[in-house]
Amino acid sequence: MNIVTLGSGHVATQLSKALYSLGHEIQQVYSKTSANACALAEVLSANYTSDLTTISRDADLYIIAVSDQAIDSIVSQLPNNLPGIIVHCSGATSSAVLDKFSHYGVIYPAQSIRKDIEIHLDQIPFAVEASDQQTARVLMENMKRLSPSTFTCSSAQRLALHTAAVFANNFSNALFQISYDILQAHELPFELLRPMILETAKKVQNHKPSSVQTGPALRGDSLTIEKHLQFLSENPQWLKIYQQLTEEISSQREK
Rank of each mutant, 00 (worst) to 15 (best):
L15Y: 05
I3H: 01
Q28A: 01
G220R: 05
S95K: 10
I63S: 12
E42N: 15
E129V: 11
I113R: 01
H103S: 15
T152S: 13
V66P: 02
I241H: 01
T54Y: 07
D51P: 08
I119T: 15
Q28G: 00
D181M: 01
S34T: 03
P216H: 04
S179C: 12
Q14L: 00
N173W: 04
E199C: 01
A41C: 06
N47E: 13
I26R: 02
Y62T: 09
V11P: 11
G7Q: 07
Y20Q: 11
K255C: 07
S222P: 00
L78M: 10
L78N: 03
R253E: 10
E199L: 02
L22A: 10
A70I: 03
L239C: 09
Q243L: 06
G215R: 09
L183H: 11
K202G: 05
S154V: 04
K240E: 15
V29Y: 01
Q252R: 14
S8D: 02
A185K: 12
K32P: 02
Q243S: 09
L78Q: 05
L19P: 06
V4G: 09
P79A: 06
A110V: 13
S102A: 15
Q28P: 02
Y30A: 08
G84C: 11
R145L: 13
L52D: 10
V212A: 04
I225W: 08
P189I: 02
E191P: 03
I241S: 04
H24M: 07
A39N: 14
Q205E: 13
I119M: 09
L239R: 08
R158V: 11
P236G: 08
S112Q: 07
F190K: 06
L52Y: 11
S155N: 09
F151N: 02
I3N: 03
P216W: 05
G105R: 13
L121G: 04
S154T: 15
Q244S: 14
V43C: 09
S211C: 03
Q252S: 06
N36W: 00
A39D: 14
G105W: 12
D99F: 01
F176N: 15
I26F: 06
S73D: 13
T214H: 08
E42H: 15
A41M: 05
P195I: 05
L78S: 04
G215W: 05
T224V: 15
A18I: 08
E226H: 12
S155V: 03
I197N: 06
I71W: 06
T49M: 00
S233G: 08
N47Y: 03
P189S: 10
S149R: 14
S76R: 11
L6G: 10
N173F: 03
